[in-house]
């Protein structure tokens, strides 16, 4: 890879991922349940990795990520509904759908980014725990606003959004967010963020414009939360205010904290495990317990998920506050030549 010309080196991993995901799309496209599950997992991975940029790398603490997700979902979803009956002429409908999806992802993400800027600029001056409460308040306000607006369908939410999100598109977005997070981590920008995390006053004294860096990190993070929201809107047939509660925010926080604050691969692994675990347990109970007892047990899985998240957070903080991975990365274990642009699971 070292022999590649410099401009290509940046694009190469993207092209490679595109090809790979395209091929996978052909294979798994016929397995709707798998596609659904992998979509849920993908969205959660995007949320976790993007939240990690703020909570992990910068050491700020946002517990309102679902609010930004809601902004992306509603704005992207609304745009998709407006464009629903249109298609771009001259190209196959499938391609046109994907381009429209891309457009609504971009718009949803941008809207969330703007919201992130508006929230971040004033409130990032606040100290950690206060900031946490303000982001929580923001998330709740988004819900109140959406519930009051006729354009966003009030309590019923938006339905009929074209279900155009595909395996390939979701995992491409995962790839992009991981790539962005990694580039930030390795750059001078990322070092400044780390400095802020470790000691804000010292960072400031060393000439780091802490507010500007924090706001930038916040905006990038919100942008991807918005993208995740827009993707969510394109594979869940209906979005309503109830999907973006405080509980969702805490779910994402749990993923980030469990994986390790500052570890991208940690977030990925935690998001995948915590999303799949209930599914696996549910199937397992159904298989083992038979229809009668199994179904009852499987039902309990849904019920105990939230308390388990709570206990998990407490145990993690007491025993390993840096999370399972700490701030190490999975790919650090591989030799350097393994190609540093790849995702952890590959």
């Amino acid at each position: 890879m070292a022999s590649l010309p410099a401009p290509l080196r940046g694009v190469f991993p993207v092209l490679l991922a595109l090809l790979l995901l395209g091929a996978l799309q052909v294979v798994v496209g016929q397995l709707p349940f798998f596609v659904y599950l992998s979509s849920v997992v993908g969205v959660n991975v995007i949320l976790a990795v993007s939240l990690n940029i703020v909570n992990g790398m910068t050491g700020q603490f946002s517990i309102g990520h679902a609010g930004f997700m809601a902004v992306g979902a509603y704005v992207g979803g609304k745009l998709a509904l407006e464009m629903k009956d249109l298609a771009i002429s001259g190209i196959p409908h499938g391609v046109s759908d994907q381009l429209q999806l891309l457009a609504s992802l971009a718009v949803g993400g941008a809207a969330a980014g703007v919201a992130g800027f508006l929230v971040g600029l004033p409130s990032l001056r606040l100290r950690g725990d206060y900031l946490a409460i303000v982001t929580l308040g923001f998330g709740e306000m988004i819900r109140v606003i959406v519930s009051n607006l006729e354009v966003f369908g009030r309590a019923l939410g938006l339905s009929g959004i074209p279900q155009t999100s595909s395996f390939m598109m979701i995992w491409m977005c995962v790839f992009v967010v991981v790539l962005v997070a990694r580039r930030i981590q390795d750059s001078a920008h990322g070092r400044s963020l780390l400095a802020i995390r470790e000691d804000e006053v010292a960072a400031e004294a060393m000439g780091v414009d802490t507010t500007a860096y924090k706001v930038r990190a916040f905006v990038i993070s919100s942008f991807f939360a918005g993208v995740a929201g827009a993707l969510f809107a394109h594979f869940v047939p209906i979005i309503n205010p109830g999907s973006f509660t405080f509980v969702k925010s805490i779910e994402v926080v749990t993923m980030v904290v469990a994986g390790g604050l500052g570890s991208i691969s940690g977030s990925i692994v935690a998001a995948v495990v915590l999303t799949l675990l209930p599914e696996v347990l549910r199937s397992l109970f159904l298989q083992v317990g038979g229809l009668e007892g199994g179904a009852a047990l499987a039902q309990k899985v849904d019920q105990i998920r939230m308390p388990v998240y709570g206990i998990l957070l407490v145990i993690l903080m007491l025993s390993r506050p840096q999370g399972v991975f700490g701030s190490r990365e999975l790919w650090d274990a591989f030799p350097r030549w393994w190609g540093r642009g790849r995702r952890a699971e590959e």
Binding site: M83, K84, D85, L86, A87, I88, S89, G90, H93, L99, Q100, A103
Partner: peptide
């Protein structure tokens, strides 16, 4: 999108 749209 800007270049051309048609009714689906």
């Amino acid at each position: 999108l800007a270049t051309g749209c048609e009714k689906k």
